[in-house]
Design a binder for these strands. Structure first.
Length: 648
RNA sequence: GCCGCAGUAGCUCAGUGGUAGAGCGCACCCUUGGUAAGGGUGAGGUCGGGAGUUCAAUCCUCCCCUGCGGCACCA
């Protein structure tokens, strides 16, 4: 048998017979390493301890201390252990797939009865039993025929389908622990006992379509999370609790920002506090757009279906549009209208008024457009995913050769806005042509090329989202990451060669002939509703001072200070600060607590001392210390803070 | 839209096949208190909507609506 040379991370080399496994290598180094080994890295690949090594290789033995490969293995093995537990409890349940995901894993099952929360407890207990068995994990390579025959015999149709979808030349690997077996590409741990039994938790059960296809069977998915140790698990569960505290639906109620009700599902009733955030943000965006060379317009919300047929929306998105039928007296037929789901066809109508010259381009047309989309009921989520919303929308009509410069200009615009709003960085996703699309390949080539070049020249890296473009053109998506690491897609820029064609937009070029403009659809915040939801969660309700709906509460400590409190409020209001008085018959403790819970950034307390000194005692949200300021000082200070970042 | 779970006072939530409960909030009174809940009294409910079973339904069954967790969708 031939000899191979294995090189270790420290540069040491050892020689073994070809076919040696990492488990044997580890045991050869030391008995304890042999026991602790969970997997190996062989030439950079994640390698099962049982897989033979046949060539000279670099090798590193992984233990539970190597957190990245170890977590992957633990989560992966838990998926199998959970499937085994489920089948041991309910032998007629059919297994499907169970991948590792962020923080854990899931496994999809086909079972007639729903899993209940109590079932999760049962499964979890059974899983711990399996871990305690310390069952060795065995693996074998099988032929497709044998594997298919095996699963047909065992009445596991999903596995048969999976195998049939695997390309013919890939070897099929089977894994066992105990008598339980699963198809899996590995790698896995040495035995089930290597899984920390106290660092995982089954989280929830939810429906999921087989192979992600809504036309196919609905399976039951059980989600679990797993970590290297109990402490990490606890920290994760803690983090979830913290995230729940930031939920914009909860804070929206506590801060009295908005509400929603069954008569208008997916639509927001903005209360005075919430609407203050909305209009402050809108005023800010309007200033930015004016500076950015946009003109602002406003267009109708109910439009005849003929326009939507012409734009192509009727054909493609009719099911997601609010249709409005009107029976006019004496009308021969019903007028069928739709609420606008987007502003672009309307903007083309404005563009089409009068002849446009090449000198008019690029024409940047902005609208805070109220749109309505009949989103599927299951998609609705607070104010983040709604049926009625306002976009900070704009369409840039330009020549094809201006796409690149306009794209770069928009990316600069957007970077500046995000920075002002407290998001220092964002990532960019580039979505190219989808399978069903309008327009020729040549046009798509040019559009994709221009977008890419502009993104690069704006200094942005991007990740590719293959096939995810809109049907009319490629798009860029701008993704913000919030304070607890969640991603939110907000901005977008989409190139559109199709709509100007369909709605017959044109301009007179230098050559005196009519030419088609290109449209760039772009939004920076996306929708105000969604963006405000993101802001609330990002800041856990403690909005930056200039955006806070209630900026200052001036609280009287004793009734005799009431007149002075009103005087302070007036001074602040005159200085452009949103201030209100709290003269209620309550103790200062009570007032401080209530306004802190309400996320008011600044509380100014006034008792007789302040009246005499013409001062206030300042308490800022989240700070325990208070300090004294003269009325003049605090007015100047807060007035500056209340100024939006672009006006400072 | 699909799967599962839920809906009781403004909010958070107990509860029972036969008169509906708490805390907070709200109103009024007492209290003038110095930085995260001072005390008392009181009002407040078609128990999401509809049908059925039952002598009797907030409770059991079915349908619908809305919400929540996922899946699918997101021009």
């Amino acid at each position: 048998m031939s000899q191979i040379t294995l090189t270790f991370p420290d540069g040491n080399q050892r020689h073994y017979a070809a076919g040696i496994t990492p488990a044997e290598v580890a045991s050869d180094i030391s008995t304890s390493l042999g026991k602790k080994a969970v997997s190996a890295s062989v030439n950079g690949a994640h390698w099962d301890v049982q897989w033979p090594i046949t060539n000279d290789s670099s090798i590193a033995i992984n233990t539970l201390k190597d957190s990245e490969p170890a977590l992957e293995l633990i989560r992966h093995d838990l998926a199998h252990i959970m499937a085994r537990a489920v089948q041991e409890i309910w032998p007629d349940v059919k297994v499907t797939i169970g991948p590792v995901i962020e923080n854990g894993w899931y496994y999809d099952f086909d079972r007639t009865e729903p899993f209940t929360p109590e079932d999760l407890g049962l499964i979890e207990k059974k899983m711990k039993d399996i871990i305690n068995l310390r069952d060795p994990v065995r693996t074998e390579v099988w032929s497709r025929e044998d594997a298919i025959a095996h699963y047909e015999e065992n009445n596991e149709p999903y596995k048969v389908e999976l195998i049939e979808a695997i390309p013919g030349d890939e070897p099929l690997r089977m894994y066992w622990h105990g008598d339980w077996q699963d198809l899996c590409r590995g790698p896995h741990l040495q035995h089930t006992g290597q899984v920390p039994a106290d660092a995982f938790k089954l989280m929830s059960v939810a429906g999921a379509y087989w192979r992600g296809d809504s036309n196919r069977a609905m399976l039951q998915r059980i989600y679990g999370v797993a970590f290297l140790n109990k402490e990490d698990l606890r920290a994760y569960l803690n983090m979830l609790e913290e995230a729940a505290k930031r939920d914009h639906r909860k804070l929206g109620r506590e801060m009295n920002l908005f509400h929603m009700q069954p008569e208008a599902p997916g639509q927001v009733f903005w209360h005075p506090n919430g609407w203050k955030i909305f209009t402050t943000l809108q005023d800010y965006m309007r200033r930015q757009q004016t500076r950015g060379g946009y003109v602002e317009v406003n267009t109708p919300q109910v439009l005849d279906r003929k326009l939507w047929e012409a734009s192509g929306h009727w054909e493609k998105y009719q099911e997601n549009m609010f249709i409005v039928e009107v029976d006019e007296e004496h009308a021969r037929e019903k007028a069928v209208n739709a609420l606008k789901p987007m502003n672009c066809p309307c903007h083309v109508q404005i563009f089409n008024q009068g002849l446009k010259s090449y000198r008019d381009l690029p024409l940047r047309m902005a609208e805070f457009g109220s749109c309505a989309r009949y989103e599927p009921s299951g998609a609705l989520h607070g104010i983040m995913r709604v049926r009625g919303f306002v976009q900070d929308d704009a369409h840039i009509f330009c020549r094809p050769d201006q796409i690149e410069a306009e794209t770069k200009r928009f990316i600069d615009f957007l970077s500046n806005v995000y920075k002002d709003l407290g998001f220092a960085s964002f990532s960019v996703k580039f979505s190219d042509r989808p399978e069903t699309r309008a327009g020729s390949d040549d046009v798509w080539d040019r559009a994709e090329e221009a977008l890419k070049k502009a993104t690069i020249s704006a200094g942005c890296d991007f990740t590719l989202n293959p096939g995810e473009g809109a049907f009319y053109g490629p798009k860029l998506e701008f993704v913000l990451t919030d304070a607890i690491g969640r991603d939110w897609q907000c901005g977008t820029l989409q190139v559109d060669f199709v709509l100007p064609e369909r709605l017959e937009a044109n301009f007179i070029a230098e050559d005196g002939d009519k030419h088609r403009p290109v449209m760039l659809h772009r939004a920076c915040l996306g929708s105000f509703e969604r963006f405000i939801g993101i802001l609330i969660e990002e800041h856990a309700g403690k909005l930056p001072f200039w955006l806070a709906p209630r900026q200052v509460v001036v609280a009287a400590i004793v009734t005799d200070a009431n007149d002075y409190v009103l005087e302070v409020v007036e001074a602040l209001k005159s200085a452009g600060v949103r201030a209100e008085a709290d003269l209620r018959n309550e103790k200062i403790n009570y007032k401080v607590r209530e306004h802190s819970v309400g996320k008011v950034p600044v509380i100014l307390a006034c008792g007789m001392r302040e009246v005499e000194e013409n001062s206030v005692t300042v308490r800022k949200l989240g700070e325990k210390e208070t300090y004294s300021r003269s009325l003049a000082e605090i007015t100047t200070e807060l007035s500056t803070e209340a100024t939006p970042p672009d006006l400072r």
